[in-house]
């Protein structure tokens, strides 16, 4: 799985960071960064939860 955050949509609501802190961090600029672009399978559930909860639906998941 590959994870991408759309910087045009992200408004720093931090839902991703709370759901999957291993994979997302919101920076000083209030934009989410992807820390692990291809997270391991055991983080899948957390990453999917982050994508589902993002208020602006800024997280895109691509299957390899």
């Amino acid at each position: 799985m590959r994870v991408v955050v759309d910087p045009d949509l992200c408004e720093g609501n931090r839902k991703c960071e709370l759901a999957a802190p291993e994979v997302f961090r919101v920076g000083e600029d209030e934009l989410a960064r992807v820390l692990i672009e291809r997270p391991p399978e055991e983080l899948r559930a957390k990453v999917e939860q982050a994508a589902r909860l993002c208020p602006r639906q800024a997280i895109r998941l691509f299957e390899d």
Binding site: D8, L9, E11, G12, N13, R14, E30
Partner: peptide, 14 residues
Amino acid sequence: VRMRRLVNKGFTPR
């Protein structure tokens, strides 16, 4: 997206 970005920095959590 372009129009919203003119103002959205004033509405972030911080």
